[in-house]
Design a protein around this nucleic acid. Sequence first.
DNA 1: TGGCTGATTACCT
DNA 2: GGTAATCAGCCAA
Length: 216
Amino acid sequence: MPTQPLPILSLLRDELPLDTVVLARFMIGKYLVHDLPEGRISGRIVETEAYPLGDSTSHAFLGRRPYNGAMFLAPGYAYVRLTYGLSYMLNMSAEAEGIGAGILLRAIEPLEGLPLMEARRPGVPLRDLARGPGRLTMALGIGQSFDGRDLCTGRDLWIGAIETGDVLIGVTTRIGLSREMHQPLRFFEPGSAFVSGPRKLLLPPHAGALAARKFN
DNA sequence: TGGCTGATTACCT
DNA sequence: GGTAATCAGCCAA
């Protein structure tokens, strides 16, 4: 028998921080939900990356293009793009409308709808179901058709929160980049087994404090 | 659990 | 033709 659904409340657009880096931090410990006819898939967001304005690795760096329009929307819209020819990345727009910026959702801790995720990823252990940006979209069944969707609707694919206290957040450099490799723009839940990259701060304490002050 | 390597395919970031 | 916001598999400790 299914248990009671988690009391996840949809996040309103007004509740989202405008600033890209603040938003990336804010989303750690929040929830990603996909309501399907077969049931609900949900998970706790444990890893994000920020791609702020002016970042040369951002898909919006060269300005508006046919494929990146969603990054220029108001906060809370999905920007979906294929990388390496085979993995879809789920991002969320940040900053005011007209500014191209966003955050990448890199990993979730699967909570509800495990059978639905396992059906899409047969034989994959729970820990690996959504550990990584490509795996996350595979587990949730997210493809290019989700590009531009509003994630603040509380329906279909949406983001939410559960009343909780503060969460601890770790910071490191981002993963998989060949440039801009020194920016502390990756955020994660320290110690979570569902995080795809390093789970401990690589920065010495004083540098971590600097990063925290600068990017909190 | 962390690190390394090879495979892989759409797009021009 | 080169590049890319990766994954799966393997190995070591």
